[in-house]
Simulated scan of single mutants.
Amino acid sequence: MLLICAMAGNYISYRLFNERIYLYNALTDLLGLFTVLAVGEAGRIHGETNSILLFYLISPTVFTAWISASAINRVEFVDDEFKNSRVRIIISIATIVAILFLFTALLLANIPIIFAVAFSIAAKNLLIIIAARRNWSEKNISAKIYFGFLLAVYLSIFSIFLPVFGKAFIENIPHAICTLISLESLIFYICLIYKKSINLTDQVHRDPLTGCLNRVGWRKTTDELMLKKNKSAIALIDLDEFKNINDSHGHLVGDKVLVEVSKRIRSSLSTNDLVARIGGDEFFLFMSEDSSQESIASRIATVLHSLRKPFKFGEKSFSITASIGVTCTPKDGSNLADLMRKADVAMYSVKKNGKCGYAYFANISHHQASPS
Rank of each mutant, 00 (worst) to 15 (best):
S70T: 10
R277N: 05
K331P: 00
L127G: 03
F361T: 03
E48R: 12
I91R: 10
P330E: 01
R277V: 02
V257T: 15
L274F: 05
I234S: 01
A359G: 09
F63T: 08
L102S: 06
S288G: 15
A65L: 07
N199Q: 14
I91K: 09
G250K: 13
N50Q: 10
A235K: 00
N110S: 07
I111F: 10
E81A: 12
N199I: 04
R266C: 10
A152I: 13
F115L: 05
V350K: 06
S92F: 15
R86E: 15
P330D: 00
N25R: 05
I111R: 02
G325H: 06
N140F: 09
F115H: 06
P208N: 08
A123N: 01
I121D: 00
A8T: 09
H46G: 00
L150Q: 15
E282D: 10
L57M: 14
T210F: 12
L339T: 01
Q203P: 05
F82V: 09
E260R: 09
L126K: 00
G314V: 09
V204A: 12
S156N: 05
A369C: 13
E294M: 11
I129D: 00
G354H: 09
L225F: 03
V350A: 07
I190Q: 07
I58C: 06
A362K: 10
S13C: 07
L304C: 14
H251Y: 07
A71Y: 07
P371S: 15
D207S: 12
G354V: 01
N246F: 01
L150F: 15
L307I: 11
L213Q: 04
R308E: 11
H251W: 07
S370F: 12
K228N: 07
D240T: 02
K144R: 14
W136S: 11
L27Y: 06
K331C: 03
L151D: 10
A362T: 04
I90S: 10
H249G: 07
F188V: 02
S365K: 14
F101L: 15
P174G: 13
M287Q: 09
F165K: 11
Y154K: 02
Y154G: 10
I45V: 15
S372T: 15
L107K: 15
A131T: 02
P112K: 02
I190A: 14
C178H: 05
H175D: 13
I96F: 10
T179K: 02
N172L: 03
E260L: 11
A337I: 13
S298Y: 05
I96Q: 08
L53P: 09
A343D: 09
